[in-house]
Design a binder for these strands. Structure first.
Lengths: 229, 229
DNA sequence: TAAGGTCTGGACAATATGTCCGAACAACAT
DNA sequence: ATGTTGTTCGGACATATTGTCCAGACCTTA
């Protein structure tokens, strides 16, 4: 009975990964053409990717399986991009925040199309929904920790409720990045990151940091000081 | 040819409205039981609502038709709830903001379950998607106008980009209200509104209003001055 | 009683899903 | 060379859902 050898399992996993990559490439392309993930049939996917429907079901439970596996891989990857932000401390300036958030946005940017599919699928696929919930929990937990520590160290507004503030800001980031950033290019992208940085700066740091520096006349700002008409 | 009389049209519209109400009631109930709108079959809906599938298709194009019609009704209704907020001016306090936003949240609260269905359906139904886009555009336009006027009048941070800031905050509100508020009760709800109010206050008003009042020692805050451990 | 309308169950074609199978094929060991 | 194993394929299958259509039942009003 050689059916359950280690070798066969690893090659199978490798094959699965390869097919997943090929299929997600197709998903991304069709998504970019305006089709929605929910409406994509398995037949459409496999024919574009060059395999048979039978083979698809050998490696994947269903369409959602494709996405939840990808999501699992990507979650930790994008989580790293927040380190630069959360490393900020008492000497942070508004420009530091701007740079850190630009880095977060850049990390998410390549994945916005597939993330849109994930959100689609989370509407009906339990395993995808679970993945999304886990991602949000991680984001909230990271931000909550940053707020708590910042309050202890005195560089985050002490009146903020860490958990709830983190929840609102995490949803703003999720939706903003996947809905606003996805369609933005060049100058418009810069403006969006500026606005994002201003919101985070004003909310978390400005009440204590700007107040303390008010006397010196410096606000740590080198760009986007444009005023509205 | 008596088929196109005014009377028959009005009674038909009335009948449509009645059936829509009955069906949405069912949708809401099933949604509350954990089913997702996408997965609800028309058969399931009509049998619960006590009509035949044939009749359903006489009055509605499809499931999405149900929601986009409802959305059209609700958009203007909830838009009104923001008037109290946008009426705030130079003498606004943090507690005024808190009250105004609590009012907005209360207006949305009864509709969170159906709004979740709308978001679901917008993934594949073009007409629902259009409705959602229109709702977001309205919200952004209202908030952008408030920011612009506030900057002119000097009670909103002049460095904010009105359009982009409004976009981020509108998505935060949409997601926050439909994801966070939906499951919150009592004290947790209060905390969420507190956090929401703090974010909006800090972002828009605090940089100019708190700065101007710093000398007097009053910050317009009567509750939730609790500090994190 | 007749006409207009409304609702219903059922039939229908079209599409999608997930499962299953036999045939074809290649790699590899005996 | 031959058989074993694993992979892929096309196709068949049962099932579910969608949207359309129709004939009959029913009710109200002229």
């Amino acid at each position: 009975m050689p059916s359950v050898t280690r070798k066969s399992q690893t090659t199978r996993a490798a094959r699965r990964a390869e097919l997943r990559a090929r299929l997600l490439e197709v998903v991304e392309r069709l998504l970019a053409q305006g089709e929605s993930f929910t409406e994509m049939s398995v037949e459409r996917l496999v024919s574009e990717a060059g395999l048979s429907r039978s083979t698809f079901y050998v490696y994947f439970e269903d369409k959602g399986d494709l996405l939840s596996a990808w999501l699992g891989d990507i979650i930790s990857q994008v989580a790293e991009s927040t380190q630069q932000w959360y490393a900020l401390s008492t000497d942070a300036t508004r420009d530091d925040v701007r740079r850190a958030l630009a880095h977060v946005v850049e990390s998410y940017a390549p994945h916005t199309t597939l993330m849109a599919a994930v959100i689609d699928a989370s509407a009906y696929d339990p395993s995808v929904r679970e993945g999304v919930a886990e991602m949000m929990n991680r984001n909230v937990a990271g931000l909550r920790h940053h707020i708590r520590e910042g309050q202890k160290a005195g560089f985050v507004d002490p009146k903020l409720l860490p958990q709830e503030t983190a929840e609102w800001l995490a949803w703003m980031a999720e939706r903003g990045i996947h809905q606003l950033i996805r369609t933005a290019k060049g100058k418009q992208l810069e403006r969006l990151v500026d606005a994002y940085a201003d919101i985070v700066w004003n909310t978390l740091y400005a009440p204590v940091l700007d107040a303390g520096r008010a006397a010196k006349g410096s606000d740590g700002r080198t760009r986007s000081s444009k005023r509205a008409a």
